[in-house]
Structure formats: C-alpha cells, structure tokens
C-alpha cells in the first residue's frame, strides 16, 4: 500500500520556485530519505505534506486520503517533527506532549500512558516534569520528536531532527527512528547529512533547488556514479583556478570550496598519484588527503557539481 503519493507538486514564494514538480511515492512501512542542501525545498515539502498550506499545483495523497478533500483523516495518520523545536518553553515536557496528545483526541488514562511511553522512548521520562526551557538543545529536540509521536501516527515526517544536536542525542534520535520504522511506522526523513540518510533509509530522493534530481535505493544511486570514488584534498592556500586538475586523466569532476578540493574519480588509488603530482607541479602545498568510497555525497556532487554543504 502507498502511504504518501505526491504528484507533480509545485510551490512558489513570489518569484522563487521553492518546490518544482515534485513527484514521490512512499510505500507503507518504508523509510524514505529526502536529502538536499540548505534551501533545497525540504521544509516547504514537509509543510505541504502536513497540510499547512496547499501546493500551487499538483496533488498530495496521504494513506489513501486526498489531503485537501479529507484533511482530518489524512492528519490523523501523520506525526510531524518540525525542523525548529516547536514547544512551549514554560510548560514541562509532559505538559507539552499531553497538550498535543489532547489535540489528537487522547484523554485520561490512554493519554497518560502514551505520554509516558513516548517520553521513555526518547529517554527523558525521568525529567518529564521540568519546564522545557531548562533542557539542553538536544533534549528539546527529543521532546520535539515525542510530541510528534504521542498519538501513535502511522506516518512520521521528520524535518532535519538532528540539526545542532550533540553526538549522544543524535545517536539516541537515530536509534528511536530506526526502532519505530522497525515496528512498521512509515518514515519520511529529511536531512542534509548523507550519513544519516544512508543509515536510516533504504530509499532516497536527492533534492536540489526544488527539484528531485535523483531517486532510488542507495545502490541504484551509487550506480549513477559508475562506482566512483571521492578524493578530498586539503591545501594550505585556497585555490582559485582548478582547471588544471580537470585535465588529469580519469578525473571526472572537481569541486573547490575554499582550501578543500573534492575530486570524483573512478578509482581512488590510481588517480591519487597523478593528482598529488599535478598539485606539486603548481607548487601547491597539500595539508591533507582522504580517499572515500562512493556515497550519497558523491552522488550529489556528481549531479550538481556542488557539495551538500555548499
């Protein structure tokens, strides 16, 4: 069964086309990653999927319900974890989660039970009665997730839930999402961290400037590169002209950002020697070199000529 069906959806902000002809389909129980750099249109997509505003064109169907024909039925299926923590700082974690639970029609003992369950799930039940404003950034993000889960949604939309989070909280968040997905919850996870998306999601769409530029399973996306590797070179001075590197045989692509170069090559080991000597010939000092296996970042670079963090 299809849980999310997005058909040719576009959204403009004035002259800016934030989402451009988006078409995705997510199976029930899947974990779907939406990967894209800042401004790609991920949050705009999540907002439209959660019914905050309608797309300018196109249709959205959630769990068999048209989002604009049967909004209430569609919303009942969804839990949303917004990009920015959306909680009442003066209320306790428990009060926050309970409030949003009530909006979903929970009350009494079932509400209390669910509040405890989700707060235990994110590991903060023992501090649940403290006001949210006294929590660390990572804890707030975990409560933010709990508030999206309290009504046991079938579909969870997460918008960059780990931004600005310490490694410990990040690990906890990723584990929770994995666990929920393992229990059958459909997950749509947006991020610009390719490691997270590759860890969580089998199916991935890469988004840039409002468009899906590639989608498929991780393996399918890697195939796009034809088994390419990824060489990162750190130079002591920023480079302005990198055209000489593009002339090296087997170098498919060069991206420079400050003093960091990223080169895409079919085989890391073989090309490395040529690259290093070409730099030496230009009297460029190298302060670090790293060879990486093909990954989503390479896919993005391959497709756009930019790194994800550009």
């Amino acid at each position: 069964m299809t849980m999310i069906n997005v058909d040719n959806v576009s959204k403009n902000y004035g002259a800016l086309r934030a989402v451009d002809g988006l078409t995705i389909s997510i199976e029930s129980g899947a974990a779907f990653g939406l990967l894209g750099p800042n401004g790609a249109g991920k949050s705009t997509t999540i907002s439209m999927l959660s019914g905050l505003f309608p797309p300018d064109t196109g249709n959205i169907n959630i769990g068999g319900y048209d989002l604009w024909q049967e909004p209430m039925a569609a919303r009942r299926l969804m839990g949303i974890v917004p990009q920015d923590v959306a909680l009442y700082p003066a209320l306790s974690a428990l009060e926050n989660v309970a409030f949003f639970g009530r909006l979903h029609g929970l009350a009494g003992a079932p509400l209390r039970k669910r509040c405890q369950e989700v707060l235990e799930l994110v590991g903060l039940w023992d501090r649940a009665r403290e006001p949210v404003k006294t929590y660390s950034g990572g804890m707030k993000r975990r409560i933010n997730i709990a508030a999206g889960l309290v009504h046991s949604p079938k579909l969870l939309l997460l918008d960059e839930p780990t931004v600005g989070v310490d490694p410990q909280s990040r690990r906890a968040i990723l584990d929770v999402i994995k666990e929920l997905n393992g229990q059958g919850m459909t997950v749509l996870y947006t991020s610009h961290y390719m490691e997270e998306v590759s860890e969580l999601c089998r199916y991935i769409a890469v988004m840039d400037k409002g468009r899906i530029i590639a989608q498929g399973t991780q393996d399918e996306l890697h195939m796009l590169l034809g088994g390419a590797d990824f060489i990162r070179v750190e130079t002591s001075e920023p480079l302005t002209d990198v055209s000489f590197l593009e002339k090296i045989p087997n170098v498919r692509q060069v991206a420079a950002k400050g003093s960091e170069l990223t080169l895409t090559v079919p085989n890391g080991g073989k090309a490395l020697a040529n690259i290093v000597s070409a730099l030496a010939a230009q009297n460029i000092e190298i302060s670090g070199v790293k060879v990486e296996q093909a990954n989503l970042e390479a896919v993005f670079l391959h497709l756009t000529g930019r790194t994800l963090r550009d």
């Binding site: 959660s50 019914g51 209430m72």
Partner: peptide, 11 residues
C-alpha cells in the same frame, strides 16, 4: 515558534 503550525497539523 511553530506551535501554531503544530496545532494546524493536528486534526
């Protein structure tokens, strides 16, 4: 703060 959006996202 996004809590209004949260309300609008609930049924």
């Amino acid at each position: 703060g996004g809590t209004l959006a949260r309300m609008y996202q609930s049924p």
